[in-house]
Design a binder for these strands. Structure first.
Lengths: 257, 257
DNA sequence: ACCTGAACACCGTTCAAGT
DNA sequence: ACCTGAACACCGTTCAAGT
């Protein structure tokens, strides 16, 4: 594999690739196949359980063969990271309004993060400049620029929405992962954690509030709660964008003679 | 160390502790000292570089001594996680308005995440029911309940604000970590990444937009940009909360005769 | 009660060697 | 051009043994 010679090695996506693959024989290995196997293993076992050796075993190959196609484990994870961005169903770019597409992007991103709980740590770790990530970023920019915000406000508004979704999806994904590990239903697991926390002297006080909230919501499932909170937060963010856009319009017109 | 006998082992904070420490002699080891050393090592080298063996070396003790005080590495990380929540300077709870305290909590949390870039992955991984985390959570609830939102909206609004801060601080912390690794100033690093990305065929197109944004902001430093975007997002969120509260008031009065 | 040493089953990665 | 095997310097954790 060609190696970057100079400067900071910032990402897989910034090193030239040899074009030497002549498909000279049907090798079981290439970057796509390796990346796909990586995603499969990450989905099945999570980030901690993933190793180059396990990947090699999955590909029925010796541990070191993979290193012909990839410089380091980090590079491989960066490839897997970008690959799953390709799963996002992106809305039509020509939509007139910004609200619908923005909600669609946020919802898709949330689903992606929950489906691949290993994604958030990687998305935080690397530069996210792979082709699929860039397409996603472009969509986000296009949509947010249509919201009527001042230009300087666009990056902040994007952060408000998509850092929120990132955080929300991260925590939700971990929660559901623990649920799976426990072998219980989400609701049974939630109740069990609440009970355990409630029994413990140091933490009991903290749950009484949570219990009240739960009761006030009238027997909704955990999944319902997660959906409702997400929806409310998204409504709040859309309302916030509208308010900031209105504020900018007012200030703009106040400056005119 | 006493072990949890039944149920899902969900957290260090849910196992009874023996009260057998009689301070019978000035041992160099106890939970606090071990936790403090863990935080020190995590701050210095990050999560990946941290190991039980390195920690033991730092404490001038054999690798396995630590296991007398702590069941697993996970438990230790959970202790470190909660310990740093104790660094948060929390606002007075009796403040009349909610806006100031909410901004203060968000800003403090952002600073904490950036100061300890190993914190986000751990905060995502564990249950966050340590004593310090609970104090923080109680402050958040108290403040948000004063914003005039309907009760069912409070969890969603908390998510909107603090999942955003979580995501923002995570990415910011990683960025500044890469800056430190590069040995460059934040601005030089940022320029270098932009240049490298701009030179690369696959990614070049993506930066032209970013360059324009940068130019439109008129020579601000990277640190300024991060602060401004965060401030704008926080304004947006406060405006969103106000809008949702107003909406609830309207619907409430519309229902009256 | 607290600490140690040896051992087990793993890691990522390098490097020389095979075909 | 692609794949292998042996080796290096690590991991977290168990377990029997020391004081």
């Amino acid at each position: 594999m060609a190696r970057a010679e100079r400067g900071v090695r910032a990402s897989v996506w910034l090193v030239e690739r040899d074009t030497r693959r002549g498909a000279r024989r049907p090798s079981p290995l290439d970057r796509e196949r390796i990346t796909a196997a990586t995603v499969r293993l990450l989905d099945a076992g999570g980030l901690d359980a993933f190793s180059m050796r396990r990947l090699a075993a999955e590909l029925k190959v010796t541990a070191m063969s993979v290193y012909w196609y990839v410089d380091t484990k980090d590079d491989l994870l960066e490839l897997a990271l970008d690959a799953v961005y390709g799963e996002l169903a992106l809305p039509e770019e020509r939509d007139a309004d910004w609200r619908g597409p923005l909600r669609a992007l946020a919802t898709e991103y949330r689903r992606l993060l929950v489906r691949h709980p290993w994604l958030p740590p990687l998305a935080g770790r690397y530069l996210n400049i792979g082709p699929q990530a860039l397409v996603f970023a472009r969509h986000i920019h296009t949509v947010m620029r249509r919201a009527g915000l001042p230009d300087e406000g666009v990056p902040g508004a994007i952060s408000a929405v998509f850092r929120f979704v990132y955080g929300y999806g991260t925590v939700e994904g971990h929660f559901l992962g623990r649920v799976t590990d426990s072998g219980l239903t989400p609701d049974a697991y939630y109740r069990q954690v609440m009970d355990t926390v409630g029994e413990h002297p140091g933490t009991a006080e903290a749950v009484t509030g949570a219990r009240d909230i739960l009761a006030a919501r009238g027997g909704a499932t955990v999944a319902d709660m997660l959906d409702r909170d997400f929806a409310f937060a998204l409504d709040l963010l859309v309302a916030g964008i509208e308010a900031m856009a209105a504020r900018a319009r007012q200030q703009g017109s106040a400056l005119e003679p």
